[in-house]
């Protein structure tokens, strides 16, 4: 008898994803779906899609979905959660959405301790609009709107969301992970599942920042993009748990 040890999770729709070859959104989608499967919550989960490359996530998850305006996903999620507190509500947002136009919604949903799960995909660039500077674009990084490299004297410095939110008392769990290697993907899987489990257990606001690639707008082959992430993003955005209110509990932080 053969056992299937790896396959598409049920919560991920059986449709082709529209992402570019090698785009890591697909990996992160799968990790989210695996968490939903593992916790058996598909029937009571509602996802909130944001604006950016991941806008079509509403077509990719088997659970009910709502598409939010740019940056407003945490506010929409707040409404969904307050309306149906037993439902599991997650948002899936990119860096432009969450860390630029939606900064207020991000900070204040954390401050309120909303019992929601936020998946924050940081690939240091605006993908959908064709590769402009993001709030998380690294110093010196070339984008369409920083053609000579991001000059911190002129365009400022990146926003570090996990570090920033770690100072917000209302937040429960903040972890930064990456999807550049199998080991890191497995860690990301644990973090995402934990961010959902926290909500199931009523523990409050959980956000997982996932360092991700954008091969197309970075102008790199998929494997080279992974390497670039490893060599440039991880040093600037160190991986790890930035906050875990329940770290001392059994099943808390690693």
């Amino acid at each position: 008898m053969a056992n299937t040890v790896f396959q598409k999770p049920h919560a991920l729709c059986d449709v082709p994803l529209h992402y570019c070859p090698g785009c890591t959104h697909g990996i992160i989608h799968r990790l989210v779906a695996e968490a939903i499967d593992a916790l058996g919550i598909e029937g009571r989960t509602v996802g909130v899609a944001s604006v950016g490359c991941s806008v079509f996530t509403y077509n990719y998850f088997e659970c009910d979905m709502v598409q939010a305006a740019h940056g407003r996903a945490p506010a929409v999620a707040t409404g969904l959660k307050r309306a149906e507190p037993n439902n599991i509500i997650f948002t899936y947002q990119g860096d432009g959405d969450l860390a630029a136009i939606g900064t207020a919604e991000t900070v204040h949903s954390a401050a309120r301790g909303e019992n929601i799960t936020i998946i924050f995909v940081n690939n240091a660039i605006y993908g959908m609009t064709g590769g402009q500077m993001a709030p998380t674009t690294l110093p010196g990084q070339v984008t369409q709107t920083t053609p000579y490299g991001r000059d911190p004297q002129y365009a400022g410095l990146p926003v570090k969301i996990c570090e920033m939110l770690s100072q917000v008392d209302g937040a429960t769990y903040l972890e930064r992970v990456a999807v550049d290697s199998v080991a890191h993907i497995n860690q990301a899987k644990r973090a995402i599942e934990k961010a959902f489990r926290n909500q199931v257990e009523g523990k409050g606001f959980s956000l997982v920042e996932v360092l991700s690639t954008c091969p197309t707008n970075w102008g790199k082959e998929p494997a080279a993009a992974m390497e670039w992430l490893r060599e440039n993003m991880i040093p600037y955005y160190p991986l790890g748990v930035y906050k875990d209110k329940y770290a001392d509990e059994k099943g808390g932080s690693k």
């Binding site: 008898m1 056992n3 040890v5 396959q7 994803l17 090698g22």
Partner: peptide, 14 residues
């Protein structure tokens, strides 16, 4: 694990 498009399925002998 690293495939972004869920192309691969793996079975193992139980």
């Amino acid at each position: 694990t690293i495939c972004p498009d869920c192309v691969i399925t793996i079975e193992r002998e139980a």
